[in-house]
Write a protein that binds this DNA or RNA. Structure first.
Lengths: 107, 107
DNA sequence: TGCGCTCATGTCACATCTGACATATCATAG
DNA sequence: CTATGATATGTCAGATGTGACATGAGCGCA
């Protein structure tokens, strides 16, 4: 998948404001990626707020530390399904998930 | 996946109000299934409103009629990813998607 | 310096999802 | 009744996602 670059760039220090810009992504692909970003941010927030390490959290949702890291990094290899399941497992409500999807930068 | 039954029961004429009841689903599994239902309903609405057959729509999003039918039926074999991509392809905004997830029974 | 804890990244066998196809059901028109 | 168009259901080979493992980087602490 082409969009694998995003992560790299992001790591390299680029503030992600609108993602698209550099990479030649279609509008739909962009929307999809941003939507995943909203969820992964939300996931990290919830995990950190509950004082868990990635490893603890992984066990709690029946996964592994490395996959949790990838979830939070919104790695191309993680599906929306996994992100949403992860959020639900933390007790996030569908409403909160909907909000995370609808608009980013929400507290 | 266990939850494959849902569809069958639903077909058999059971009004799905809260899904859970019969099948022994955990709260999280239930929430996940309902969340998918919200999206699949939304998808069918958007397709019908734009006057497309499943077949037309399938071509437009690079899939097949049978898969579209499964998407709208919220078949266990379809992922959230596919539903969301499908919605985005119809021009649905992240906001609309978020709303479809947050609360069902929305017009 | 070395140790323990946390998070990131790459890899891979195994599981799940996907498009395509075949076929079935169900209307509605002729 | 019988075509025709739309939708539903089952199957499967190939594509994609997943947990697990190894390993490295960063950090605070003795």
């Amino acid at each position: 998948m082409e969009a694998a670059k995003r992560k790299k760039l992001q790591r390299a220090g680029w503030k992600i404001g609108s993602t698209q810009d550099f990479l030649g992504l279609s509008d739909e692909e962009t929307a999809f990626v941003e939507l995943k970003l909203g969820l992964s941010e939300r996931l990290r927030i919830r995990r950190v707020n509950s004082g868990l390490s990635q490893d603890d959290f992984a066990k709690r949702i029946g996964s592994s530390q490395s996959r949790v890291a990838k979830m939070e990094a919104s790695d191309p290899s993680v599906s929306l399904d996994l992100l949403v399941r992860g959020l639900l497992a933390t007790g996030a409500t569908p409403k909160e998930i909907g909000t995370a999807i609808a608009r980013r930068h929400v507290a």
